[in-house]
C-alpha cells in the first residue's frame, strides 16, 4: 500500500485483501481523487433520483397530468411506473461506473476465488 510498484502481472497475481498497514500512506493523492470522483457520481445520480421521484412524481404531478400518453396522465405514470424504471437504471449505471473507477485506480477486487465456487 505504501508504494505502487509497476508490476507486470498485476491482474493474476494481485494479493488477497488484507488489513492495511497502520501508518497512513504517503501518497494520499489517489485516495482523495478516487473518493471525490465517487462522491461526484453519487451526487449526480441522487439528483436524478430526486428529480424523477419527488420532482415529477410528487411536486409536479398535477401539471404533468395534463399530458396524456397511451392513456396515462404523465405525472401519474411517473409516480406509479416511470420512477421505478429510473431507479433500476440508476443502480445499474452506478455499479458499472464504479467498476470502471475501481479498475482505473487499481482498487478492484480479484474475482477468482469467489467465482470458482
Amino acid at each position: 500500500m505504501t508504494e505502487v510498484t509497476p508490476d507486470n502481472e498485476a491482474r493474476g497475481g494481485a494479493p488477497p485483501p488484507s488489513s492495511p498497514p497502520p501508518a497512513s500512506p504517503p501518497d494520499n493523492g489517489w485516495r482523495k481523487e478516487y473518493w471525490s470522483r465517487n462522491l461526484r457520481l453519487m451526487v449526480i445520480l441522487l439528483a436524478i433520483w430526486f428529480i424523477v421521484s419527488f420532482g415529477f412524481g410528487v411536486l409536479l404531478v398535477e401539471p404533468l397530468n395534463n399530458i396524456v400518453i397511451a392513456g396515462f396522465p404523465l405525472g401519474f405514470w411517473f409516480a406509479q411506473q416511470g420512477s421505478i424504471y429510473v431507479f433500476v437504471i440508476l443502480i445499474l449505471v452506478y455499479a458499472k461506473m464504479m467498476d470502471r473507477l475501481d479498475s482505473q485506480f487499481g482498487v478492484d477486487e480479484p474475482e477468482t476465488e469467489g467465482a470458482a465456487k
Binding site: V4, A10, G106, E109
Partner: peptide, 19 residues
Amino acid sequence: VENIRYPSERRAVTAGNTP
C-alpha cells in the same frame, strides 16, 4: 472509516491498460 471507502488494496495500474 477511511478503509471501508476503497473496495480493496491498491495494486499496480499500467497506463492505457483498461481491464
